[in-house]
Simulated assay, not measured.
Amino acid sequence: MTGWQKLTEHDAIEAAVAEHGKDRAASVAYCALKAYDGRDSAEYRFWFGLFLKPAKRKRVA
Rank of each mutant, 00 (worst) to 15 (best):
E9L: 03
E9T: 03
H10T: 15
D11Y: 13
A12W: 03
A12R: 03
A12K: 01
A12S: 10
I13T: 00
E14M: 02
E14P: 04
E14I: 01
A15Q: 07
A16P: 08
A16D: 02
A16F: 00
V17E: 04
V17P: 04
V17C: 08
A18M: 08
A18C: 09
A18K: 01
A18V: 10
A18P: 02
H20W: 09
H20Q: 14
H20C: 10
H20N: 14
H20E: 13
G21D: 06
K22V: 00
K22H: 09
K22F: 05
K22L: 04
D23Y: 10
D23I: 12
R24C: 11
R24S: 15
R24L: 08
A25E: 06
A26N: 12
S27L: 04
V28T: 02
A29K: 13
A29R: 14
A29Y: 10
A29T: 07
A29F: 10
Y30L: 06
Y30W: 06
Y30S: 09
C31T: 01
C31I: 01
A32F: 06
A32H: 05
A35W: 03
A35T: 09
A35E: 13
Y36F: 13
Y36K: 05
D37E: 14
D37Q: 13
D37Y: 15
D37V: 13
D37P: 13
D37G: 15
G38F: 09
G38D: 09
R39D: 12
R39W: 12
R39C: 13
D40Q: 15
D40P: 10
D40S: 15
D40G: 15
D40V: 14
S41E: 09
S41A: 06
S41Q: 10
A42Y: 07
A42W: 05
A42H: 07
E43F: 02
F46R: 11
F46K: 09
W47S: 04
W47F: 05
F48T: 04
F48K: 09
G49R: 03
G49P: 00
G49E: 00
L50T: 06
L52M: 14
K53S: 09
K53D: 07
P54S: 01
P54L: 05
P54M: 05
A55T: 14
